[in-house]
């Protein structure tokens, strides 16, 4: 542990609306990893969405409303951790900016932001996690999601965590830091550009032909998996937490459900 907590810190899991709706297994994987890292995991009922879609659409008022609700939902916890670079950046960097001009709220947002972390960087930088439950054997590649990479500097940590699994083979694709073209509402506002971007991404992936594409953001993953699926590719996509936690019972994103 590098954060100096003697007792088990209470970590509020910010599930993110995509994980809640689309892929609960990522939430369970995150909870498992946090538990491994010696944390008590709490999932506040009152959380919904961080407000990023409103914020990035220019609707500051709505974003602020949701931001205040989110801050309130995580009152009293030692940390707030999200399995998403994009949501974590919203909570950590943009909430205080959103409140600027309103001293009281800004103070609250700053206090909140200090406790917020993206999952993978939290595990490595704050909790110094030294081993992971998962033991994936096979060839994977990792896509650097933009917000995590550029806003929160998440890049070494996921690779460090993956390297804890002896039988995994991480092969870097070309242009791993290039945007996949998701961009939230961008993907449906400008589908053609988005498609051109994700096509470039799947072309990079094809060059290294992994079994799995991993990333720390479900938005990117849905976009990449959706494109790979349309291209008839067999390559799977998973949130990196699933692999690290060994929570891989569910099929990869956009893959057929196992016959039950």
């Amino acid at each position: 542990m590098t954060d100096g907590y003697a007792r088990r810190p209470r970590v509020g899991l910010f599930v993110t609306c995509l994980v809640d709706l689309m892929r609960p297994s990522v939430g369970f994987a995150a909870a498992r990893l946090l538990h491994e890292a010696g944390c008590e995991v709490v999932v506040p009922r009152a959380q919904t969405c961080c407000g990023q879609p409103a914020y990035n659409s220019g609707d500051r008022e709505s974003a602020k409303t949701l931001a205040l609700a989110t801050i309130a939902a995580f009152e009293g916890l030692d940390y707030v951790v999200a399995p998403s670079g994009s949501c974590a950046a919203m909570l950590k960097l943009h909430y205080p900016r959103l409140m600027s001009g309103d001293d009281d709220s800004e103070r609250r947002a700053r206090g909140f932001a200090e406790r917020v972390h993206e999952l993978l960087s939290f595990l490595v930088d704050v909790r110094g996690l030294a081993s992971v439950p998962g033991n994936y054997a096979g060839k994977v590649t990792y896509h650097d999601g933009c917000s995590g990479l550029r806003e929160l500097k998440v890049s070494g940590q996921p690779r460090q965590l993956l390297a804890m699994m002896p039988e995994i083979e991480l092969i870097e694709m070309p242009a791993t830091q290039a945007c996949c073209g998701f961009g939230g509402l961008f993907s449906i506002k400008f589908p053609d550009i988005s498609n051109a971007m994700v096509s470039a991404k799947t072309a990079s992936i094809d060059q290294v032909a992994p079994e799995l594409v991993l990333a720390g953001d479900l938005g990117c993953l849905m976009n990449i998996a959706g494109k790979l699926s349309r291209q008839g590719s067999k390559i799977g996509c998973r949130h990196v937490a699933e692999v690290l936690a060994g929570e891989t019972a569910d099929p990869p994103i956009a893959h057929p459900r196992a016959a039950s």
């Binding site: 599930v15 892929r23 589908p191 498609n195 959706g226 956009a254």
Partner: peptide
């Protein structure tokens, strides 16, 4: 039009 939409797992995390 150009991508498939991945299906949700079916139940929410909450």
């Amino acid at each position: 039009r150009q991508r498939d939409f991945p299906a949700p797992q079916g139940t929410t995390f909450q």
